[in-house]
Nucleic acid binder design. Structure first.
Length: 497
DNA sequence: TCTGGGGTCCTAGGACCC
DNA sequence: TCTGGGGTCCTAGGACCC
């Protein structure tokens, strides 16, 4: 590391602009795969420089335990579910020597390594260590994309470096690893730097633990071709098996398959992705804050549940927890789902979509219980879960409170979905101007009329009945006192035309 | 007593609308 | 008159990631 590069870690206010960011929802980012989807249809420019960095903390949960408990250092440590149906979350390298792996059942881990320390995990400690690491990364570049507590991409093109040549980014990567070690009290990180997310992620895996690999631009394919297809993120057991049957094991072999054949083998989206990734084509940007899409709570029980009343009580409690987390992050959602895993591991899901978003525990619980009622659980249930998706950051209660109506969810729930209106000209205009990306037009019945709502701190309303054409669309900032006064009275009804 | 919990994304079929 | 295509939304299930 050189002084020049060390100094290039921008500590100016501008450089720290992203410090302390969370997702839009303010949720701690816990899990996000890089998957295969975000490749654009026409993958064109691959970066000319190795300016994407991927950092991965080594055996993160176990390493935090060893850091905080010196007696565990140098010994096998397994963090995960410790009950009869638990699985391994993280195994220290000492435990990996005995064949203990992530996602293995704790039962099997105990058989392989009986003398390891089995711990259930201290997520506050992990979150805190993670936050310190992310702060170091954001100190370096405003473009940091956390994938989970222990992983992130950093766009070095925004790091204010004098250049992006290999010696410069190598020195910066070493500096970052040293700073991570420093701020976490001794945790090590493996880092990959390359011309794309895909290659950076693969590179960070090559010299674990505590390693650094910088892929020199132009050498990507030479690095990739000999590797097994399973190194490609998004290629799991099912895809490996399909490819194996087609005689494909390595990336080099994958490269020889036509795009049409790949689509036939693994489907449209994954086929196109694999076709490009096999050629090291990946132009996905580093995206600093991605929006939360769903919130869920689930639990696996030590013995199978058979009592319907008990299941109903569990689902009610889980709905409350989901609602609490939604509310805590200013979110609400329209689709309520339940997940049921039967005694034989058959997994069922059922969902139902409300006309307007909710964060109300009673509404979510009621719907979840109704969905559960329609399932045959007589053989026993090992897992139950409740989730809400179709999230908006607009909460319907605001709108109803503004319209001076009774509690929202009753009316909302009774509004048949098939009465949902499409945006008219004015609605469409609002949609493009102020509506959150991906957010649907929502409405709910209000007296004899209709109320329309939007997010992003803006509420859009209009009055309409079965007998009259739609009234003018009015919009208010959510904190506008005029919104409180807005009513859909008779005199505001437009004349029939 | 095999097989967690929190997520993301994709697929496929049906409904519905234009 | 007959057949149809595209787009969007919803639901259920599955693959995958950490």
């Amino acid at each position: 590391m050189t002084t020049t590069v060390a100094g290039s870690c921008d500590t100016s206010p501008e450089g720290r602009a992203g410090l302390g960011r969370t997702t839009r929802a303010g949720l701690p980012v816990e899990s996000r795969g890089i998957g295969l989807s975000p490749l654009s249809t026409n993958v064109t420019a691959v970066r000319a420089h190795a300016s994407v960095l991927h950092l991965d903390l080594d055996a993160f949960f176990a390493a935090v335990e060893q850091r905080d408990k010196p007696s565990l250092r140098g010994k096998p440590v397994v963090v995960g579910g410790t009950g009869g149906r638990g699985v391994v979350s993280t195994a220290s390298y000492e435990a990996r020597a005995y064949g203990v792996r992530s996602a293995m059942s704790t039962r099997e881990a105990r058989a392989r390594c009986p003398h390891a320390a089995y711990l259930s995990g201290r997520f506050e400690a992990y979150r805190s260590a993670s936050a310190a690491v992310m702060a170091v990364l954001r100190d370096c570049s405003p473009l940091v994309e956390p994938l989970s507590l222990d992983e992130a991409f950093v766009d070095l093109a925004e790091a204010g470096l004098p250049d992006l040549e290999v010696p410069t980014v190598t020195a910066l990567a070493e500096e970052l690893r040293a700073r991570v070690h420093e701020v976490t009290g001794g945790l090590t990180a493996s880092v990959g730097v390359a011309s794309s997310k895909f290659l950076a992620k693969i590179a960070s895996d090559l010299r674990k633990p505590d390693g650094l690999v910088v892929v020199e631009p132009g050498t990507e394919l030479a690095l990739l071709r000999p590797l097994h297809v399973s190194v490609i993120p998004g290629v799991g057991p099912a895809t490996v098996e399909r490819l194996r049957r087609a005689g494909v094991h390595t990336v080099a072999e994958l490269e020889r398959i036509s795009q049409e054949e790949l689509v036939r083998l693994v489907g449209k989206a994954q086929g196109h992705s694999l076709f490009h990734l096999a050629r090291a084509e990946d132009d996905r940007p580093v995206v600093p804050d991605r929006e939360t899409k769903s919130v869920s709570v689930e639990g696996t029980y030590e013995t199978d549940l058979t009592d319907r009343q008990q299941m109903s009580a569990i689902v009610t409690r889980q709905a409350g927890e989901v609602a609490r987390r939604l509310k805590g992050n200013g979110l609400s959602g329209r689709t309520v789902s339940i997940k049921v895993r039967l005694y034989d591991f058959t997994t069922l899901s059922r969902s139902s979509t409300l006309p307007a978003p909710t964060d109300d525990p009673a509404t979510i619980a009621r719907l979840a219980r109704t969905l559960l009622e329609d399932l045959d659980t007589s053989g026993g249930v090992r897992l139950l879960g409740v989730g809400v998706s179709g999230l908006a950051d607009w909460i319907q209660e605001d709108l109803f409170a503004a319209a001076g109506d009774e509690p929202a969810e009753e009316a909302a729930q009774e509004t048949p979905v098939d009465q949902r209106a499409e945006p008219d000209q004015a609605g469409a205009r609002w949609r493009s101007a102020t509506w959150a990306p991906g957010m649907d037009v929502v409405h709910a019945e209000h007296g004899r009329g209709w109320v329309w709502g939007s997010g992003r701190g803006v509420v859009t309303v209009r009055f309409e009945t079965a007998d009259t054409p739609p009234g003018p669309v009015r919009s208010f900032r959510a904190d506008d006192p005029d919104l409180e006064r807005w009513r859909p009275p008779e005199e505001e009804q437009p004349e029939a035309q």
